[in-house]
Amino acid sequence: MSISPPSDKVWWKEPIEKTELIWISIVFVWGVFMTFMMPYWHVVGDQNLPNETYRVTPEQFMAKAQGMVDQFTVGEHGPQKTPIVHPPAGSDVYLVARLWSWWPVLELEKGQSYRVHLSSLDWQHGFSLQPANINIQVVPDYEYVVNLTPDESGEYSLICNEYCGIGHHLMIGKLLVVE
């Protein structure tokens, strides 16, 4: 009985119910299978977050982003006149998260890969690309380099899904994918 000591003093040697043995075997094999799926997807799958990360100060990161913006700006977007940047395919692109905006607006080409560098200048933020629904944590002092390959053209929204204070729900940006 569960609320009193086991009646058998040496309960370790009691036989196990057949039902339990069947179930334990199934769930053990299932666990092994699920364990295998993650490394397997690293080999064959197209959606795996990388390990590439650097320590960075907000000033260093902003300088790199500014360099990219100065070189590749092609227009302006929205009420804040956020620069639209069209970097070369395959290049390093920088996305700045700060209270409470994403900067700049990136314009990427469909089917091309970009080394997207993510960092925050202040608090933690959440990169949430909609409607593709890709969600990545953005942490200040760290620069995360993620290769992204857009698969469809259109206007995407970047919303913040890590609570970052009273203006959290105002933090929205855009990412454009062109043919």
Partner: peptide, 29 residues
């Protein structure tokens, strides 16, 4: 921490699987 920077996939995969889903097995038991 699965989408965090700086932590390796090995660390993430091992810990998120509770060491081969043994704790999940326990819950299912």
């Amino acid at each position: 921490l699965l989408v965090d920077p700086g932590l390796s996939s090995n660390y993430k995969m091992f810990n998120t699987s509770y060491a081969m889903y043994l704790a999940v097995m326990a819950s299912m038991v």
